Simulated scan of single mutants.
Amino acid sequence: MALAALKSRRRDEYKFELEYRTRWSDNDMYHHVNNSIYYFLFDSVVNTYLINHCSLHPPTSSQIGLVVHSHCDYLAPIEFPAVVDLALRVNKLGKSSVTYEIGVFERGQVEVKAVGEFVHVFVDRDSRKPGADGMAASLKDGLSSILVDKAKL
């Protein structure tokens, strides 16, 4: 995706938000949120959505999501203390896989600070293979509600 398109992302292009209050320990020696923290945040917003809106219960679900791809475009720094809004949408929904996009916005600012991509493949817990029917209906239904129109990609 073109960097200019990512830089122009706005909150209203996402369908779910989760607040995160930065911690002192999130900063690195350059006094901004460390790159590894962004991946922690991506995992948190995705799994919060799956648990609260897709009926996923990780300890007992027969299907689990394996991350097969992730990346982040860092557009501007965030530093402690800050409140950030993690904005989530689904860009692509397949039979067993889902591609999420996460926009990281600092509270009170319009510009997106980072845009991440996270791909899950839902597989059988024991075999680690996708099921013949793909992901569970409750997952697909919940993810469909945050799927964006392809024209907005």
Rank of each mutant, 00 (worst) to 15 (best):
C72K: 05
D73W: 07
S25C: 14
M29T: 07
N34E: 10
H31N: 08
Y30T: 08
W24F: 09
V84Y: 00
S70I: 06
P59Q: 04
V46R: 14
H69D: 15
S70V: 10
L41V: 09
N91R: 11
H57Y: 15
N27W: 05
F40T: 12
Y74H: 08
Y39P: 10
A82N: 12
D43W: 05
K15F: 06
L86A: 04
N34I: 11
V83G: 01
T48M: 09
T22K: 00
N27L: 12
D12I: 06
H71C: 12
V45D: 13
A82I: 04
L93Q: 01
R21T: 00
S70Y: 11
V45H: 05
S61V: 09
L86H: 00
N27H: 10
D28H: 00
S55E: 09
H31L: 11
L93V: 01
P81E: 07
K15T: 06
S62V: 13
D85H: 08
S44Y: 02
D43R: 00
H57K: 15
L50K: 02
D73H: 11
A76I: 05
P77T: 07
L66H: 01
I51K: 01
F42A: 01
D85M: 14
T60E: 15
V45E: 11
D28R: 04
N35E: 07
D12V: 10
R89G: 00
A76E: 13
L41Y: 14
V46S: 04
F16D: 02
D12K: 02
R23W: 08
V46A: 14
R23F: 07
Y38K: 08
V67P: 08
V68H: 04
L93N: 00
N27R: 07
C72L: 11
S36R: 13
S55H: 14
D85P: 03
F80G: 02
S61G: 10
S70T: 14
F42D: 00
L41E: 15
H57E: 15
E19F: 11
I51E: 06
S25T: 13
N34R: 10
L75I: 06
S62K: 14
V67E: 04
L86I: 06
L86W: 05
T22V: 12
